[in-house]
Amino acid sequence: MKNDATQKPCSASRSVMTQLIFPSDTNHHGTMFGGKVMDYIDKIAAIASMRHARKPVVTASSDSLDFLAPIRLGEVIELEAYVTWTHKSSMEVVVNVLSENLYTGERRLTVTAFFTFVAVDNEGKASPVPAVVPETAEEIRLHQSAPERYELRIKRKQERQNASKMV
């Protein structure tokens, strides 16, 4: 792990966004468009990455985006993101989306996602980022399992590059 001057806790990147779901956000089923949720997820993950790196970032990968339950018209969604793990210039960010019925107070996890961002310098070249230090049990769990997700990302990228050479 990097020295203390280049480490930051997961909480330093924690970012939260709240949105009320309007008719223009929904499909003919009265549930939120998946693409609209994805837009919000990419934004909040970018904010968390920039808070961690204190540099510009670019989206490198969307490893998983799992829709667990529908988000309904009139509900509020709360997106929470933070950096779970870092490599040299890349950062893995987890995003959880909770929906809330404002009349009943019922809250449920509706979407989870893992994104990877890369910090860049003024020339657009990859730039080093601080290590991340997990503190809570959930942060520790995600941090410990991140190297496996990193290896899967690398493998998936190599497979796609090899497949594109065959076309």
Score class of each variant (00 low, 15 high):
D66L: 00
E78A: 13
E78F: 04
H87M: 04
R107L: 06
S62L: 10
V95R: 06
L73M: 12
S90P: 02
T86H: 03
F67V: 10
V93N: 06
V76Q: 02
E80I: 15
L73F: 11
I77N: 02
G74F: 12
V57Q: 01
T59M: 09
E80K: 15
L68E: 12
G74M: 12
F67C: 04
E75D: 10
L65C: 11
E80L: 13
S99L: 14
I77K: 03
G105C: 14
N96D: 07
L65T: 11
D66R: 04
R108P: 02
S61C: 13
R72W: 09
R107T: 06
S61I: 09
L65G: 01
N96G: 01
D63H: 05
A81D: 00
E78D: 12
Y103W: 10
E106M: 13
V94G: 07
L102C: 07
L65S: 05
P70W: 12
W85H: 12
E106A: 14
T84N: 04
V58C: 13
A69W: 03
V94Q: 06
S99I: 11
P70R: 11
E80Q: 15
T104F: 06
L109A: 13
V83Y: 00
L65D: 03
V58F: 10
V57G: 01
L98N: 15
V58R: 12
